[in-house]
Design a protein around this nucleic acid. Sequence first.
DNA 1: GTGCCAACGTTGGCCAGACCAACGACATTC
DNA 2: GAATGTCGTTGGTCTGGCCAACGTTGGCAC
Lengths: 159, 159
Amino acid sequence: MEPVDSRRAPDRLRTQASWLINQVALPANRLVGEGLAAAGLRRHHYALLATLDEVGPASQADLSRRTSIDRSDMVATVNELVELGYVERAPDPTDRRRNVVSLTAAGRRRLRQLDDLLAEVQSQLLEPLSPSERTQLTGLLTRLADHHAPAQANPPPRP
Amino acid sequence: MEPVDSRRAPDRLRTQASWLINQVALPANRLVGEGLAAAGLRRHHYALLATLDEVGPASQADLSRRTSIDRSDMVATVNELVELGYVERAPDPTDRRRNVVSLTAAGRRRLRQLDDLLAEVQSQLLEPLSPSERTQLTGLLTRLADHHAPAQANPPPRP
DNA sequence: GTGCCAACGTTGGCCAGACCAACGACATTC
DNA sequence: GAATGTCGTTGGTCTGGCCAACGTTGGCAC
C-alpha cells in the first residue's frame, strides 16, 4: 500500500512547467533573500552592485534595462546604496537628464563578499543536481529567459 | 565588432541559477496570469480547482498543504470560487473543525477549459525548447522542487 | 531657430502573492 | 478531564513587479 503523502501536490500541477518554475523560484528567492538579509541588503541591491561592477558607471535608466528593475524602483535602490556608501550618484555633465551611478571602493569590497555568499546559495539551491545537470539546467533556463526577454531594441553603440 | 546590447544583463547575473529561475518565473507567471485573467480567475483559483478534481473533496487545511497556498489565503480563494459557483463548502459532519470543499459540475466544466488554456500557455512558455529538452527541464525542476519542498512530515507509519 | 517628440529621474500609487500571529471552536491524547 | 494540537478565520506585514504622470532636458525635422 503506497503511503499517500497528504502534502503532495496533484500531478495536474506537478507536471506544469509554469508551476514547477514557481515552486523552484520560491525557495531560490527565499535563500537569496535570507543570505542578503544577513548583510542587510535585498536582491535589488545585489543586482545593482553586480551590474555596476561589470559594466562600469552608468545611468539609472541603463541600469534599469540591464537589471530589469523598474526605473521607479531603481530610484529607491540607488538611494539606499548611496546611504550605505556603496554607490555614488552624480549628475552626468554630458547629458543633464541623467545621473551617473558608480561603485565606491566600499561597494566593491561589499560585492566580493556578496559574491561568495551567493555562490554558496547557488550550491544549496542546486544541491540535488550533478555538475553536468546544473549546466544543463542553466543552459535551458538561459534560452527561456532570452526568449522571453523584453523586446530587444538595440540603440547605436556609444562612440 | 560585437554590438553591445544595452539591455543585456551582466554575466554575473545571467549565470546565476537563482536569477535565471526568476527571469523565467516572471514571464511564466505573467502568461498564466493573463490567461486566467481572461477567464476572470487567478492562479490560486486554478490550483484549487485542479487539486479538488484530482484528490476529491477535501478540507481547506489539506488543500492548503497540497497547493502550498497559505491557510489564510485559502479562505479567500474558496470564498471567491463559492461565489462563482465552482465550488461548494460544507461543514464536515465527522469533524466539526473542518469544512469539506468540493467541485461543482460548473467548476468541473470550467476546469476543463482552463486546462486547455494552460496547456496553450505551457507551449508558449517552452516554445524555444524541443520536446526532449522540455522533458529534461521539467525533470530537473521536479527534483529541485521536491528537494526544497516544505519539510515533508509524512504521517508517521504508526509504530 | 523653433517645435515636437523621446528619454530621464522622480513621485505616488496599485496589485498579487507569500507570509505570520492570534483567536475560538473543536478533537485527540494521556 | 487537562494538555496539546488542528482547523477556519481575521487582520495584518512585506516584497516585488508594474503603471501613469510630472517637469526637465536632448535630439531632430523643418
